[in-house]
Structure formats: C-alpha cells, structure tokens
C-alpha cells in the first residue's frame, strides 16, 4: 500500500531522514518506534507532503506521491492524526469533524460518519457545540482521531496517540485503533514511544534511530529482541 524508498528529508541544511525505506501492506497495522528526535514525525510529515523529501520515492498504491501538494495526497486517502492533536481551538467539535470531511461532498454519508464517531466516543457528542480548545487532552485526542476518520482514509497515520493520556484513555484509544483496522479494513501506521503498547497491537514494526531504520521485523520478534528490550521496553 505504502512504500518509502531511500527517503531523505531536510530541515534547511539539517538532514532529518537519512534514507528511510519501509513497506506497509494493505490492511496491516505497522508501528514505527524510536527515541525523541529520531525522525518519526518527520517521516509522517514527509508522507503527507508537509515537509516533502529532497530525494527518494514515496509510493502510495503504486503511484509516486513525493512532490505532490498535501491536499492532493490527502485526496488519495491518507489521513494523519498529528503529534499534539492539533485541534482547531476555536472551531466547535462538529466543525472540527466537518473539516475532517473537507474533501467529501456526500452530505448524508458525512452525517452518518459523524454519528458513528459519536458512537465511538460518546463524550464528543455531549461536547459537539463546544470549541475544540475547551476539551481535555484525552477528549482532544478522540476528536483528532475522529476528525481523521471523517475523511474515510485508506491509510491512517497516527503520531503518538498515547502521549500525555491517562492509562484508561490510552487503552480506549488503542482498542479503537484495532477496531478501525479490523472492521473498516483501514491500514494503520502507528508512531509510538510507548513501544510495549504499540508492539502489542501492531503486526510488524520498524525501529528508527537518528533518521535511519535500524531494525525491522514482526511485532513478536521485536518484543523479544534484546536491543529493543533494553532501549525501548525498559527491561
């Protein structure tokens, strides 16, 4: 479904991705783990065209999307829940969800999807007319995920959805990630620092260090890998 081939991305003269290659198959949950500053968020922003790669290829369903405008990339079916949620603070919950469906025109279906989000996260239904900025961190994360789902993505990119959340919210959100994957067939690319959790839901994983992929394998093999255990699982 998605393939990165020797992707190099720069901030000015600083190289943040130093030749990243990875593959995500249709229907998979793939995780990318790594320490602070490894380049995980940059990888997601490169895929979405916000920080386009300087060299290398990004193939989505066989087509090279590197160098396309972000709105063109989104329209192919890639949604992102970015780091820090990035809820529009002065738009209401419903308006935030409307923005998720920005590229769609099927009003009736959009309404159904919104109701579906409210079923997944009933708290959002209660808050529907409230400005996004007034929600709690956990509620904002639910809204950010719902907003991304409103686009009906084929590929959902999640950047540290567990960050700063209470364990109860984290479990809820991971349950829903698995559900989206199982029931809607949405492919998931999950960036996490919480490697233990991520490797429990993921099929396969990649480990990133310093802008490079240093390790890859099935979730099980990574969980048992001595280096991963030491560096990311704290065992």
């Amino acid at each position: 479904m998605l393939e990165l081939d020797d992707v190099k991305t720069f901030y000015g003269s600083i190289m943040a991705l130093k030749g990243v290659s990875l593959k995500i198959g249709e229907g998979e949950i793939i995780t990318l783990i790594g320490a602070n500053g490894a380049g995980k968020s940059t990888a997601l922003m490169s895929i979405c065209g916000i920080v386009p790669p300087r060299s290398g290829k990004i193939l989505f369903r066989g087509r090279d999307i590197s160098g396309r405008d972000p709105h063109g990339i989104v329209s192919l079916g890639i949604s992102q829940v970015p780091e820090g949620r990035r809820i529009f603070p002065q738009l209401t919950v419903m308006e935030n969800l409307d923005m998720g469906a920005f590229l769609r025109n099927d009003k009736g279906e959009i309404k159904k999807d919104m109701e579906h989000c409210f079923e997944l996260f009933p708290i959002l239904a209660q808050r529907r007319h409230q400005p996004g900025g007034t929600l709690s961190g956990g509620e904002q994360q639910m809204l950010a995920i719902s907003r991304a789902l409103m686009a009906r993505p084929r590929l959902l990119l999640l950047d540290e959805p567990s960050l700063g959340l209470a364990p109860i919210f984290v479990r809820l959100i991971f349950k829903i990630i698995e559900k989206i994957n199982r029931e809607d067939g949405t492919t998931i690319f999950l960036v996490e620092q919480n490697a233990h959790l991520a490797l429990q839901v993921a099929h396969r994983g990649y480990v990133m260090e310093n802008g490079r992929i240093v390790l890859e394998g099935s979730a099980q093999s990574l969980l048992n890998n001595e280096d991963v255990k030491r560096a990311y699982l704290g065992i």
């Binding site: 979405c48 065209g49 916000i50 972000p70 709105h71 989104v74 329209s75 949604s79 992102q80 970015p82 990035r86 529009f88 603070p89 002065q90 738009l91 923005m99 998720g100 920005f102 590229l103 907003r147 686009a151």
Partner: peptide, 11 residues
C-alpha cells in the same frame, strides 16, 4: 488557526 493542519485535511 493552524495552516499545516488544514493542509493535512485536504485544504
């Protein structure tokens, strides 16, 4: 409010 986020939603 957030230009890059708007871009990520297809604006």
């Amino acid at each position: 409010q957030d230009r890059n986020m708007a871009m990520l939603l297809g604006v």
